[in-house]
């Protein structure tokens, strides 16, 4: 799947487009950034409720292409700015981590 599928196929709200044509090869769901840093794969999408600037920093380090913020959490301005600078896609949705993981999981198959 492509980063832009998060918008076109799953209708998540786009906060920062990142690199829309980049290919997503895996998903990682976690709210603990140290866990993300250690275990997330390259070119993956991160499913989390951690709407924080640090999430973008970790995503950049871990080679994550897109972040989906769940449970309708607001994305703070400094996080959106960091995402734009780092070209990390950020989306948000009212759905929870379980549902989002299942939806993205289905697209990856």
């Amino acid at each position: 799947m492509k980063v832009s599928d998060l918008k076109t196929k799953l209708a998540y709200e786009e906060v920062c487009a990142g690199n829309p044509d980049a290919e997503i090869r895996a998903g990682y769901t976690s709210d603990l950034l140290s866990d993300v840093m250690g275990n997330a794969l390259d070119d993956s999408v991160l499913v989390t409720i951690q709407a924080h600037k640090n999430t973008v920093a970790v995503a950049t380090l871990a080679g994550i292409a897109a972040v989906v913020i769940c449970n309708n959490r607001e994305v703070p301005a400094d996080m959106a700015e960091a995402a734009a600078d780092e070209e990390v896609a950020v989306y948000r949705t009212t759905k929870n981590q379980f549902t989002v993981s299942c939806e993205i999981g289905a697209l990856l198959d």
Binding site: T29, S30, F98, S101, C102, G105
Partner: peptide, 12 residues
């Protein structure tokens, strides 16, 4: 399994 895969396994 990591959380993402565990979730996926339930939906299928």
């Amino acid at each position: 399994l990591p959380m993402f895969e565990a979730c996926k396994s339930i939906e299928n």
